[in-house]
Simulated scan of single mutants.
Amino acid sequence: MSPAVVVDAVRTPSGRGKPGGALSGVHPADLLATTLTALLERTGVDPARIDDVIAGCVGQAGDQATNVARTALLTAGYPESVPATTVDRQCGSAQQALHFAAQGVMSGAYDVVVAGGVESMSRVPLGFPGREGKPFAPLAGRYPEGLVGQGVSAEIIAGRWKLGRLELDEFAARSHELAAARAAAGDFAREIVPVGGVTADETIRPGTTAEQLGGLRPSFRDDGLAERFPEIGWHITPGNSSPLTDGASAALVTSEAKAAELGLTPRARLTGFAVTGSDPLLMLTGVIPATQRLLDRTGLTIDDIDAFEVNEAFAPVPLVWARELGVDLAKVNPRGGAIALGHPMGASGTRILATLISHLEATGGRRGVITMCEGGGMANATLVELVR
């Protein structure tokens, strides 16, 4: 099969996903359209050559309803002949869009395709599972004790792996420190597409310390769960969780042969894919088997990978992942993660792709892995190899 390559990957800045946030006044279709337009401007690709646009979005309601990928495509001025679809694999939606795009290219179904995603969490707020409606009600027969939301899952994981509050807050402070340093050095400039007058991530907080974060109250405390989950220490706060975020991202994917034909210079190859289900109660641990499955399929080991991007939905996720797989944290989220850079859920997969490619290029690395925990107990993992 023809290898799939990434010609370019871009993202908007991350805006705080609440009223008054830097991007809260921008319609989500316009956010995604900004990245779709940027790909054309940066690569010079004729949009009529694009076979499909696949975009992730989790909150497909309100301003993000009715196939927001198609709305964004038309907003960006792409020809009406170019189709689009919106996919939902929870937080891994854009990463799944990337997998679908690459697999379509590798199978010969596509020549040129755009993968990306969008989430405006200020306009379509994140609904805590069970707070509005009963999304888990049909599962009562299989899980009679009931499932819980992601925040409580993070608490359970922190408790079972004996992660204390200080360790979580220190990791969160590290995320801000790394991201702030890279932002100050201009290292995000290549991947960020300005939106209006917004040119930098609003979610980074320079100077954040573990001591400061230690003063925040737990977000998900529910003493009614204490008997069921005695291991919970109630350590998850806004400071060691990813913030609600507005943003979009997109990548242009094609085959090596088509890139050569069109005079394009690929930046990376997509050479391995995995997706797995996991315990929906501990829904955030799927990154562990997904990464292992990816390595098994590609015949690689942890030592063959130069950098890992493990989405920081909550601080316990990358910490538990690194512990279970024996990974040095110095190789994990080296430019900061979602705690600092934000987590616009439907867009995070290709946002992380853009950041990883930039890091490998800057450091002379060869291979990187992206993995993302997902609601309902799932995870994707992707192997990215730099084109030299």
Score class of each variant (00 low, 15 high):
Asp30Pro: 00
Met345Arg: 07
Val152Arg: 01
Lys331Thr: 07
Gly116Arg: 00
Gly346Phe: 01
Arg297Ile: 04
Leu147Glu: 01
Pro238Trp: 04
Val68His: 04
Leu166Gly: 09
Asp279Val: 05
Lys331Cys: 11
Ala322Trp: 00
Tyr78Met: 12
Val198Lys: 08
Pro19Ala: 13
Arg49Val: 09
Ser278Tyr: 14
Gly159Arg: 00
Val6Phe: 07
Pro206Ala: 14
Met106Asn: 11
Thr245Gly: 13
Leu74Pro: 08
Gly17Asn: 06
Glu41Pro: 06
Gly224Asn: 07
Asp223Gly: 14
Gly59Leu: 11
Asp201His: 08
Val193Ser: 09
Ile236Lys: 02
Asp51Gln: 07
Glu385Leu: 06
Ala97Pro: 01
Gly214Ile: 08
Thr208Glu: 12
Ala38Phe: 01
Leu356Val: 06
Pro194Glu: 09
Pro144Ser: 11
Ala189Asp: 15
Thr209Pro: 11
Asn311Gly: 06
Gly77Cys: 09
Ile50Gln: 03
Ser278Thr: 14
Arg323Asn: 10
Thr301Lys: 13
Leu270Gly: 07
Thr382Cys: 13
Ser122Gln: 05
Leu356Phe: 04
Gly375Met: 04
Ala290Gln: 04
Arg351Thr: 09
Ser14Pro: 04
Ala268Glu: 08
Thr254Tyr: 06
Ser348Arg: 01
Val26Thr: 15
Ser241Gln: 02
Leu225Ser: 13
Ser175Arg: 01
Arg293Asp: 14
Val198Phe: 07
Ala179Thr: 08
Leu31Ala: 12
Cys91Pro: 02
Gly130Met: 10
Leu213Arg: 02
Asn333Thr: 10
Arg131Pro: 00
Phe308His: 06
Thr37Ala: 11
Arg182Leu: 09
Ala180Asn: 05
Leu225Pro: 02
Ala102His: 05
Val327Cys: 09
Leu300Asn: 11
Arg182Glu: 14
Ser175Val: 04
Ala340Leu: 06
Lys331Tyr: 10
Glu312Tyr: 06
Pro138Met: 11
Arg165Thr: 08
Ile236Arg: 00
Asn380His: 12
Leu98Asp: 11
Gln60Ser: 13
Arg131Ser: 15
Leu31Phe: 10
Ala184Tyr: 06
Ala250Tyr: 00
Pro28Tyr: 00
Thr265Asp: 14
Val310Lys: 05
Leu325Met: 05
Ala183Glu: 14
Ala290Ile: 05
His359Leu: 08
Leu319Thr: 05
Thr254His: 02
Val310Leu: 12
